[in-house]
Amino acid sequence: MAIDQATVRKIASLARIAISDAEAAAMEGELNGILGWVEQLGEVDVTGVEPMTAVIPNKLRLRDDVIDADPMTGGNRRDDILANAPAPQHGFFGVPKVIE
C-alpha cells in the first residue's frame, strides 16, 4: 500500500525526527519504493509457520539477584553515567522543562 506525505510526517513524528516539507516529499518516493519491494513477502505461504524467535537454538539464561556483581552492569558509577551528559545538573540529567 502506498503511503502519502501525511503518513510520512506521522511516521517521522512517531520516530521523533523533524523533517522539512522537501524531505517529506523525497521520503515519500523512497519509502514507497522500499515498501513496495518488501511487500512481495505477502506472496509467501506461511500457513502453520511460527515467526522466528531465536535464530540459533539457545535458552534464555537468568542471572542471580546480586547487586553490582559485575561493575560493568552494576550501579554506583554516577560519574560514568553522567560523563557524556549534555546538561548534567547536580547529579541529574537536565532536560527542557516537562509539563505533565
Binding site: I11, L14, A15, M27, L31, L35, L41, G42, P51, M52
Partner: peptide, 29 residues
Amino acid sequence: KRRIMIGTYVLSAGFYDAYYTQAQKVRTL
C-alpha cells in the same frame, strides 16, 4: 533516518502483522 522510518512504519499499529510477523515467518522458512 530512512531505515528508522521504514522500521517505525512496519511496526506501527495495523501493519505489524502484515510486515513484521510475516517477515519473521519467512525468516523461519
